[in-house]
């Protein structure tokens, strides 16, 4: 057993932070928070604080990466050294390289890259404060930043995780649940046609539990979707 593991994750139907199993942490999204970036967004999600910026479409450097028929999308997920309890060494590690890759693949399906050949769209995701679920927070922020930059997209891409703690399937793990829980399932969704663009999982699920967790994560994505739209309305008006 790991040091610090709680004996029980759910007491009287409530989780350790007081939430119900299918309840999400409080999420606040703000679009257009940076002056120099073409688009930006700040997402505060429970104890997570993640800022995303979008630059482009712009010239590609190095130039051999450019594609003659479409724009390329580049995503960089980075954690500030002070964003976690044990200082994170600055610079990319294996985890952030993998998250950068899956983030790109989660966002690429909605972007009309064919409209801007020979250019790049660069997305930078910076985790300022982490409390489990930073990749979902990052994807959520990045897709609002892309919209804020005016990049033509089919839809926004909300993301949310479900997991398993103390034998029960729950929505949106916070750090203790993430560290000591039994499974984690981050999902990103294109709400317009219900297609899934990010799916990762680690831990232990039976087939039945997995189905329940997947549905819960999809519901979570739909809630985030409304908040994303709300943030854009807030900035640009409209009903």
């Amino acid at each position: 057993m790991k040091i610090g593991q709680p004996e029980k994750f759910i007491i009287d139907g409530k989780r350790l932070d007081g939430r119900k199993p299918d309840e999400m942490r409080e999420v606040k999204i703000q679009a257009g928070v940076l002056k120099r970036a073409d688009g930006s967004a700040l997402v505060e999600w429970g104890g997570n604080k993640v800022i995303a910026a979008c630059y482009g479409p712009r010239e590609v450097h190095p130039r051999h990466l450019a594609k003659s028929d479409k724009a390329i999308l580049r995503c960089t997920y980075n954690m500030a050294p002070f964003s976690v309890s044990d200082r994170k060494r600055p610079g990319p590690d294996r985890r952030s390289v993998e998250i950068s890759k899956v983030t790109r693949l989660a966002l690429e399906p909605v972007i009309f890259t064919n409209l801007y050949p020979r250019t790049t769209i660069d997305v930078f995701i910076e985790v300022l404060q982490a409390n489990a679920g930073t990749r979902c927070t990052g994807i959520t922020a990045a897709s609002v930043a892309l919209a804020d930059a005016g990049i033509p997209m089919r839809d926004l891409v909300p993301a949310c995780a479900a997991g398993k703690v103390g034998g029960e399937v729950v929505l949106d793990l916070f750090d203790i649940e993430d560290n000591y829980g039994e499974a984690d399932l981050p999902v990103a969704l294109i709400p317009k046609n219900n297609e899934i663009t990010l799916l990762q999982m680690d831990g232990n699920f039976t087939k039945k539990e997995f189905e329940k967790a997947l549905d819960l994560a999809i519901q979570g994505c739909m809630k985030i979707y409304e908040l994303q739209k709300g943030a854009l309305r807030e900035r640009y008006g409209g009903e």
Binding site: L185, I196, T197, L198, L199, Q200, M201, N204, F205, F210
Partner: peptide
């Protein structure tokens, strides 16, 4: 027959 990891 349980699932322990996934990656899309």
């Amino acid at each position: 027959g349980e699932i322990c990891a996934m990656q899309k």
